[in-house]
Write a protein that binds this DNA or RNA. Structure first.
Length: 581
RNA sequence: GGUCGCAUAGCUCAGCUGGAUAGAGCGCUACCCUCCGAAGGUAGAGGCCCCAGGUUCGAAUCCUGGUGCGACCGCCA
């Protein structure tokens, strides 16, 4: 059940009927008609702008249409009153029975309440994390992992067929650096003194990798030239790094459907195939780029390169795909990778990048637009930095000083659930402050706690009710006389629950999972408010001693809240808790 | 020089892709624990939605031009 969608259908059906009766012109486009919760509760439960958006195409005054439409809407049993207000809004007040229906829907549909068919089964590939396999994931990756994973969960709930994918950058020079660094650790394991030169990775995490290499190959590579060991050590090191990365992601609750290797694109004709596709469209040429405006690099000199005419698809300048020395640029395998995704037949591609990759957005979009002839959209979500704090003081990160904070550090310290929720308490493209102490505080200021607490409270209430001998199974609750919940604080809560399906669609359309987190915080707020009102007004308490019928009606509200919170949290990959510790 | 993002209460931030008198938390002020958990609650004060134009019934939201802050900017990964 989606109440907002149902009422919107009522409005558009009514408009259609008016058109058939000659009260409105035929064939009006009702696409801009919305039914929304009004900001001011005094304006009723819902408002529609139908009269205003149709005024111009219908050639009528907004109020004239509204005056005709309102009484027809009021004729529907779900609508208590329909008033024309302001410039032509129609404010609807809904019958109490409607709120009972909302609760009943939440109880009977359970985890499926709010599920949307927005995606209509279309397939979407969500690529995220995609960190270089040269070391452990850090906090920045953590945010990308959480945002990408929550977005994937959201899209799945909104009716898309979702693939979660990780692109392994195992084809470039940085994995050679990794191999050399591991080799040094290998020599060290053989008792040699080694020095980590500029441009190698000195991190301790490679020590066990060097030792494992020794166990596998003994001294076979000691004092051998690079040509002997590089390929083998590189493959071994990448394998170990990916093992570690998978473990880290698992600790955060992230499971990828597919890991795609950049290396698999080389020597297999995949890059060539992608570029041939572009060449066939006349988008590849040999040329010389203009020097960048403003500060010109010291060593700038014009060179002929193979270029992709990305400007034909919205980019600012054309981009090189092959260097002057004949090697591919980084961009070339990226094109091939997206070409591969397109060949797999996805209807929509989403990439989650760190903000430092913002400069690549236009060229990637241009590439996908060109390769798919504009048929498949590529949406790119950027995630901003995470600023770490501890007890209110900035927590400086430094690789050299060893205060480098990894994903594992964060999860070990505060847990996966807290990490995930907190990472979603800000929209992705805004910087996020993460305070190790604040996120574990059990106060209202901590949204994780506040939302979890609401869920735990409901569970506690259900336990209490069972102890009092009341059957509080969802079936029984759904069968209760829900018209007993007629207080305005109670209808406010039901109205919030009615917003859930609508919120899911908005969040999925905008690709913004943080909206789910904010909604849950608001829902928890409404629930706590009603609970607290019970302190002053005993009639509003969920458990009414000696009155099973009323208790069931009240508890049905609480249970509906818990259902939505549990569903919302699971979309975000957070486990709802039954009690606070 | 260019591109992208951001600018909303004292602070940290939401704001439905154009709706009515712009919201939340913190902080501030005043009240409130006989209670299913006060790990709080209720009420109140607090705004030039960066500036200037434009679009329209209607703009924090869209467009143009500024200002400030941040990130990125030929072969790097």
């Amino acid at each position: 059940m989606n109440l907002y969608a149902d009422i919107r259908t009522l409005v558009t059906d009514t408009l259609g009927a008016m058109a058939r009766e000659g009260a409105l012109p035929e064939g009006l486009d009702t696409g801009a008609v919305t039914v929304e919760p009004p900001r001011d509760p005094a304006h009723g439960d819902m408002a529609t702008n139908a009269a205003m958006v149709l005024a111009r195409p219908a050639g009528r005054k907004p109020r004239e249409i509204a005056e005709a439409l309102a009484p027809r809407l009021a004729a529907d049993p779900r609508v208590e009153t329909a008033d024309v207000a302001g410039p032509g809004f129609i404010n609807l007040r809904l019958a109490v029975a409607v709120w009972g229906e909302v609760l009943r829907a939440a109880l009977s549909e359970g985890a499926g309440y709010g599920r949307s068919s927005l995606g209509q089964g279309r397939s979407v590939n969500v690529e995220y994390v995609s960190a270089n396999p040269t070391g452990p994931l850090h906090v920045g990756h953590t945010r990308g992992a959480v945002v990408g994973d929550a977005l994937a969960g959201l899209m799945a709930f909104a009716g898309y067929e979702v693939t979660r994918e990780y692109y392994i950058n195992d084809g470039g020079a940085q994995v050679d650096t990794l191999a050399r660094s591991v080799y040094l650790r290998y020599l060290e394991a053989h008792g040699q003194e080694v020095a980590f030169a500029e441009g190698t990775y000195p991190g301790d995490y490679l020590i066990p990798v060097g030792q494992a290499l020794k166990e596998l190959h003994g001294d076979a590579f000691v004092d051998q030239p690079e040509s002997v060991w590089l390929d083998e050590v590189r493959a071994f090191a990448i394998g170990k790094m990916m093992e570690m990365i998978r473990d880290d992601l698992a600790a955060l609750g992230v499971t990828m459907d597919r890991f795609f290797s950049e290396k698999s694109l080389y020597g297999t004709g995949r890059i060539e195939a992608a570029l041939d596709s572009l060449r066939a469209k006349g988008l590849i040429y040999e040329g010389v780029l203009e020097p960048p405006k403003g500060k010109v690099p010291e060593d700038w000199e014009p060179r002929e390169q193979t270029l992709f005419r990305s400007t034909a698809h919205g980019d600012d300048v054309d981009r090189p795909v092959m260097k002057s020395d004949g090697a591919w640029t980084y961009f070339a395998p990226d094109i091939a990778y997206h070409y591969d995704k397109l060949e797999r037949g996805y209807d929509l591609l989403i990439d989650v990048f760190g903000a430092d990759h913002a400069g690549y957005v236009k060229r990637m979009k241009a590439a996908v637009s060109a390769l798919s002839d504009g048929r498949v959209p590529l949406e790119i979500r950027l995630t901003q930095l995470v600023r770490l704090f501890k007890g209110g003081a900035p927590f400086k990160m430094s690789k050299r000083a060893g205060t480098f904070v990894t994903l594992r550090d964060v999860v070990d310290e505060v847990g996966a659930d807290v990490t995930r929720f907190v990472m979603l308490t800000r929209k992705a493209d805004a910087p996020l402050d993460f305070d190790f102490d604040a996120v574990q505080e059990q106060t209202r200021e901590n949204p994780v706690f506040y939302v979890q607490y609401a869920h735990a409270r409901v569970c506690s209430l259900l336990r209490k009710a069972r102890e009092a001998g009341i059957d509080v199974s969802d079936d029984v609750l759904a069968g209760a006389d829900l018209s007993l919940n007629a207080h305005e604080a109670e209808t406010a809560l039901a109205a919030k629950i009615a917003e859930w399906p609508r919120l899911v669609e908005i969040a999925a359309r905008t690709g913004e999972p943080h909206r789910v987190a904010f909604y849950l915080y608001e829902l928890a707020g409404e629930f706590h408010a009603l609970w607290n009102k019970g302190n002053d007004e005993p009639a509003l308490r969920f458990l009414q001693e000696g009155d099973t019928a009323t208790s069931r009606a009240k508890i049905a509200q609480a249970r509906a809240v818990a259902v939505v919170i549990a569903t919302g949290l699971s979309i975000l990959g957070v486990t709802p808790v039954d009690e606070m510790r």
